[in-house]
Structures are given as C-alpha cells and as structure tokens.
Simulated assay, not measured.
Amino acid sequence: MWRSILDRINKLTEDITALFLLIMVLLVFVKILTRVLFQSSFPWTEELSRYLMIWITFLGASIAFKYAAHIGFDLIVNKLPGMLKKIFQVISAIACLTFFILLIVKGYELCGRSMVQSSPALDLPMAYVYAIIPISGILMSINLVDTTINKMRYS
C-alpha cells in the first residue's frame, strides 16, 4: 500500500518536472525567436522560465531522494562495520529530516507573507512561486524516510 502510494507520488512528481522542463525550453525558444525576428520579446517569458527553473530544481531534488542520488559520504560509510554504518545512516537521515521540517515550516510562513507580493511581468502572487519550498520539503521527507527504511532493511 505504502509503496504504491509513494510510487504514484514520485511518478507524478517526475511527470510534472518533465512537463515544466518542456514548457521552459519552449518559452526560452520563443523568447530567442521573437528577439531575433522582431528585435523584441515578451517580457513574461523570461520571468516564467525563471520560476519554472526554480520548481524544476526543487522537484528534481525530491526525485533524487527516491534514487538516493544526493551527494553523500558513501566511501566512508561503506567502510564502517554493519551496526556503526546503520547508526551513521540514521543520524544523517535525522539531520536531513530536521532541515526538511525547517523547509516546510519556514516555506509555509514565506508563502503566507508573500501572498500580497506579485511578480513584475505576470502579476502572479509570489506565494505560488515560493510554494515549492514546503512542497519539496514534504516530498523529500517522504522519500528520505522510505530510502532510510530500505537501507536499514537491506544493509
């Protein structure tokens, strides 16, 4: 049950990230094309591309936790004996989880404060841009817990 839900969440995250990347590439292409052809471009394309890049980065970070692809101390940890290795992995996971909880809490506060601020070209509430901070904190926390449990079981 847990695995099925997590797989769906991660698949949706990957699909959204791929879609945002496609949209961003198309926007940059349109910006370049209009600049070359008309010596002018739409001001909103650069802004939207920037916001999509932010979302892609944060969503990609959460996807990387699914594959345990973040930078780590594998060389050192793999040389440790069994129980010490597990202790080190749990301590590392607790430190990461603490940071993710801060991301969730402070990101939520930032969204609340920035609802009245709008972006220059799109007139979009900046809370929509900043919403990825707590969202990615939640996604990274879920994937971190899952990968840590799997490491404890199979190592």
Rank of each mutant, 00 (worst) to 15 (best):
L37M: 10
F100A: 12
K151P: 10
L37P: 09
F42D: 12
M126P: 00
Y67F: 14
G137Y: 02
R3C: 07
L48N: 07
T148C: 05
D74I: 09
Y67P: 01
K79Y: 11
F73K: 14
D15E: 13
L102G: 11
N143Y: 02
F38D: 10
L26R: 00
L110T: 07
S41C: 13
I54S: 07
R3M: 02
L84I: 13
G137V: 00
I54A: 13
V30E: 09
M152N: 06
Y154H: 11
P81A: 00
D74W: 10
T147G: 05
S114M: 10
I16K: 00
T34I: 08
M126I: 03
R50T: 15
Y130G: 03
I142M: 13
Y108A: 13
A61V: 04
T98D: 05
L75Q: 06
V105T: 07
W2R: 00
P43D: 09
T148D: 01
F73Y: 14
T98G: 15
F58E: 07
K11R: 05
S118E: 11
L22G: 13
T57H: 05
M115V: 05
Y128D: 08
R8S: 03
V77S: 14
F42E: 15
T13H: 05
S155H: 13
L110R: 01
G137M: 02
E47D: 08
I94C: 11
M126R: 00
M152D: 08
L122Y: 01
N78T: 14
Q117G: 00
E109P: 06
L103C: 07
R8M: 02
S141C: 02
S49H: 02
T57S: 06
F100C: 11
Y51C: 04
L124I: 14
K31P: 07
I76G: 10
G107V: 04
L84H: 14
M126K: 01
F100P: 05
H70Q: 14
N78Y: 15
P120I: 09
L75F: 11
R8A: 13
V36Q: 10
F29N: 03
G112A: 02
M83L: 09
L52P: 14
M115S: 04
M83Y: 13
I23K: 00
L6Q: 04
I104E: 14
F20S: 10
K31C: 15
L12I: 15
L75T: 15
F38T: 12
I16D: 08
V116K: 03
I5D: 02
D74Q: 13
Y51L: 11
I132L: 06
F42W: 08
N10G: 02
L37W: 06
L27F: 13
T147C: 04
I132G: 11
V116T: 01
C96D: 15
I56L: 03
L97E: 15
G82Y: 03
W2Y: 04
T34K: 01
C111W: 12
M83N: 13
V25F: 09
D15Y: 08
L6I: 13
N143E: 08
H70W: 10
L48K: 01
T148M: 04
Q39E: 13
I56D: 09
A131W: 06
R3A: 03
K151E: 12
G60L: 02
N143C: 04
A61I: 05
I16N: 03
C111D: 11
K11F: 15
F58N: 11
A61M: 11
V116C: 00
W55P: 02
